[in-house]
């Protein structure tokens, strides 16, 4: 996941750098950007090239990397294994879960951010603090807490069993729903904060002006609030989508072994199977997908990266 984050940030940097160079940048400017350029070279470009090179190799018998300059790893990702497109399925599942999670965070995060932004100033800060308080606890601990809540002998099932509402425990944990709950819980604050920032900047006399001109709540939202808070929506969606698609801890713990996402596949390839070349290829495909999705999303939001 850290790898993915790196690549995302750097994607923007490099393309911007690229534009600078194409624009015929001269000596002094080059000198000024050289610290950043060196940083990018050392921590982004060189590792990326290494991953690319590894993805073109093959696993040796002892798990080492044998550089054979082949595209077999990429072919393997898109091929049938035992009658199923196993890896593409994992990929599609990750994409689906990440998109769904982004949508859920947006649907629940927007009203929350709007509510907070409309409070008196001193109360706003208190409410934002409440949104951020979960960060004070380690993510793993919070995930385990959710497992305690959702498991067969957890709070919810125990309560329902005691009340006699159910006879058998509900299957709340170790399935796709549990993974989505975990991701939604984990990433909702990342959606709320950028949304809040853009809603707070919205001049509410514009909302009144829309009402005054005959727009009801829904049309005011469509025509005025939504377009003016689009930067926050775009930023929040990207910040939630990218870590969601690469999520590893949540599907591993809350999905049991049943909901494999790309993050789990990567972990298996690197640490269990020790097939670094294939893992690198999967990582590369993930990176390109995220880059493509982000660009597409920016374009639809009327922005360029």
């Amino acid at each position: 996941m850290a790898l993915v984050d790196h690549e995302r940030n750097a994607g923007g940097w490099t393309s911007r750098l690229f534009r600078r160079f194409r624009g015929g940048t001269t000596g002094p400017v080059l000198g000024l950007i050289s610290p950043a350029a060196l940083w990018l070279l050392a921590f982004f470009l060189i590792p990326l090239v290494i991953v690319l090179l590894v993805s073109l190799g093959q696993r040796g018998d002892a798990g080492q990397v044998v550089y054979t300059w082949t595209l077999k790893n990429y072919a393997r990702f898109f091929s049938q294994i035992g009658g199923r497109y196993l890896y593409v399925e994992i990929f599609a599942r990750s994409l689906f879960i990440a998109l769904l999670n982004t949508l859920l965070c947006l649907l629940f995060g927007f009203p929350l951010a709007y509510f907070i932004a409309r409070q008196p100033r001193n109360r706003r800060n208190a409410l934002l603090l409440l949104v951020m308080i979960p960060f004070w606890t380690n993510f793993l601990v919070r995930t385990y807490a959710w497992m305690v809540i959702l498991r067969d002998t957890g709070i919810i099932n125990n309560l329902f069993l005691t009340l006699g509402l159910i006879i058998q425990p509900l299957p709340l944990l170790f399935n796709r729903g549990a993974v989505i709950v975990g991701l939604f819980y984990g990433y909702l604050p990342f959606m709320v904060l950028p949304l809040y920032a853009s809603i707070e900047k919205l001049d509410f006399s514009l909302v009144e002006a829309a009402h005054d001109l005959g727009a009801n709540a829904l049309r005011t939202f469509q025509r005025v609030i939504l377009p003016l808070t689009m930067p926050g929506i775009v930023a929040g969606s990207i910040i939630v989508f990218i870590p969601s698609i690469g999520a590893y801890v949540t599907p591993d713990l809350m999905g049991g072994a049943k909901v494999t996402m790309i993050g789990n596949l990567l972990q298996q390839q690197f640490l269990k199977v020790r097939d670094w070349p294939f893992g690198s290829a999967v990582g590369f495909i993930l990176m390109l997908t995220v880059l493509g999705a982000t660009l597409l999303y920016f374009r639809s939001g009327g922005k360029t990266l």
């Binding site: 001049d203 006399s205 009144e208 002006a209 005054d212 001109l213 005959g214 009801n216 005011t220």
Partner: peptide, 16 residues
């Protein structure tokens, strides 16, 4: 407000 036949000119204009 959106059903009243009045219109307002705001202090800060409130242009979209």
């Amino acid at each position: 407000a959106f059903e009243r036949n009045t219109n307002m000119v705001f202090q800060n204009y409130a242009l979209f």
